[in-house]
Structures are given as C-alpha cells and as structure tokens.
C-alpha cells in the first residue's frame, strides 16, 4: 500500500508558501502522492490550481485530486485542466471525482443541484473523449488513455459509476472495516461489469500529533464536516493522533486491499509531516 499526503488546502491559516512547503517535503519523504480537497463555499484553495503549483515544486510524487465535485464544473474545462496537469507534471496526475453533497456549493457556482447525479454520469461518459487522439481539444495527457479516474461516494450508484467509467474507487474516510465493506462493493461491481483486473482502491484519513494539534484538528474537522450532521463527530473521533493508531490504521487498510492511502493533516504546521515520516520509517 502506498501512502500519500494531503495538502492542507482547506485550512484557512495555510499560506501559499505553506502549501508549497508541504508539497516539497512530501516529494522528499517516503510518500507516493499528494492529495487535495474540494470545497466551494469555504476558506479553501482551488484544488486543481493547488496541484498545478505543487507540480512545479515536485518531481516524483503523483498529484491526486481527492476529490473534486465534478457537476460544479464544466466538463470540457475540467477535461482540459486534467490533461494540462497530466502533461505539465509528466504524467503524474490522478483525477478523483464525486458528486459533492453541499447544495451551497452548487448555488454559489450557479449549477443546478437537482439532477446532479444524471449530469455526473454524462460527465463521466464524455470526459475521456477529450483525451483521445481525435479530440481537437488538447493537450494530450502523458499517461496512456489519460489520467486514472477515481470515483468517490457512498451511495449504491457510486459503485456502478466506478465500474462503468472509472479506474477505481476513492473512499471518503472511516475505520478499516467501513473501508473494507465499500471496497467489496467496488470489486463486486467491477466484476459484474466485466472489467479486466481489479479497481484501484484509495482511502483517506486525518492525522494530528500532539495534544494541542489534535484539539485544533478536531475543531477544524467538526467545522469542515458540519454539513454531514452527526457524521462530523465520527470523523473527528477517527483522527489519528498516536503512532500506534497510525500503524493499526495502516495495517487495517492494507489488509482490506487499499492501494493508496492519503493522510491529510488536521493542522497546517509542516512539522507534522516530519513526525508522520518518523512513524512510517
């Protein structure tokens, strides 16, 4: 299982330089990818642009949009951005897409909230055609067939989307058992669709080490996930705060067949990254 690092692009106190420093250090450390989160109505950085900036200061790690609310965006522009990011980064881009549950985000960009599921299906259906040889819209992605597409979400329909259009599934966070259940659904759907091989399975979690950082991180998670109602508390409770918790969590995800686990910091202090690297060493 590969371990990636999430950039704190939804932390209000993260400066531009702070985000780039996270990106640089991640590229130097034992990590395989950089993730970003997507929120419209929030004090957060635009994820695709953040990854573009990160592409400029990294050489090695994959740049993963984990995860973007697709129906908020125009499909052609999204496809062009994705192809550009893939070309600019030398084929390091991964495109994670989901519905986005917050109506305020839809209202803010003037996208209709109703019918977003159907629109998401249409976007997934056409996305790759922009990357084909015949397409007049460039650039060509570096990766054959375009960057891998991950689909996130919890609804039953999510898994049909994974199997139909994507290369894998991106889980939204939770204990290993919850991940394992969703991974099973993704594999079952994949097989039913007659896709060759297995779906990629990505997961995510939050970490914060030290009492003060953990407290601040919980506070942030309750705020960031307030829209989920009761589940904000569950997510905050799932915060990884000790070496033991991190190790057990990684073991659980690896056993469940996770290919790539993105660990997001609950606070923006880059010193947290060194502490995580020590634990993983």
């Amino acid at each position: 299982m590969n371990i990636g690092i999430g950039l704190p692009n939804t932390k209000a106190d993260a400066t531009g330089e702070c985000l780039l420093e996270w990106a640089r250090r991640t590229d130097e450390g034992p990590f395989s990818s950089l993730g970003v989160l997507d929120r419209m109505v929030y004090q957060s950085y635009e994820p695709m642009l953040t990854l573009a900036a990160a592409a400029g200061v990294t050489r090695r790690v994959r740049l993963a949009a984990t995860i973007i609310a697709a129906p908020l965006r125009n499909t052609a522009i999204l496809a062009k951005q994705a192809a550009s990011l893939d070309a600019l980064s030398g084929g390091r881009f991964v495109l994670g897409l989901a519905l986005g549950a917050r109506q305020e985000d839809y209202d803010a960009v003037g996208a209709p909230y109703r019918g977003r599921g159907r629109r998401f299906d249409e976007q997934l259906l056409t996305l790759r055609t922009f990357w084909q040889e015949e397409s007049p819209i460039g650039p060509r992605p570096v990766q054959a067939g375009g960057p891998p597409i991950l689909v996130g979400g919890m609804s039953e329909r999510t898994f049909a989307r994974v199997a139909r259009y994507a290369d894998g599934y991106m889980h939204g966070g939770g204990p290993p058992r919850a991940f394992a259940r969703m991974a099973e659904k993704a594999r079952a759907a994949w097989r039913d669709a007659g896709r060759p091989g297995k779906p990629l399975l990505w997961g995510m979690a939050y970490f914060a080490f030290g009492e003060e950082a953990a407290e601040a991180a919980r506070h942030y998670l309750l705020d960031y996930y307030a829209f989920t109602g009761p589940f904000a508390r569950r997510i905050a409770e799932g915060l990884l705060t000790t070496p033991q918790a991190v190790r057990q969590f990684l073991r659980g995800y690896a056993d469940a067949g996770c290919d790539e686990l993105i660990l997001f910091p609950g606070v923006s202090d880059v010193e947290q990254l060194d502490r995580l690297a020590d634990i993983l060493a």
Binding site: R157, A160, A188, A189, D192
Partner: peptide, 16 residues
C-alpha cells in the same frame, strides 16, 4: 441482473 441500460440501480456486495 441489471445493465439493461446504463441507469440500472444495482445494490452490490457479497452474494448479491
């Protein structure tokens, strides 16, 4: 089951 159109609403999992 399903796949008659791309809009089928399957419920996947073990032993479905």
């Amino acid at each position: 089951v399903g796949q008659t159109t791309p809009n089928s609403r399957p419920v996947y999992g073990r032993n479905y």
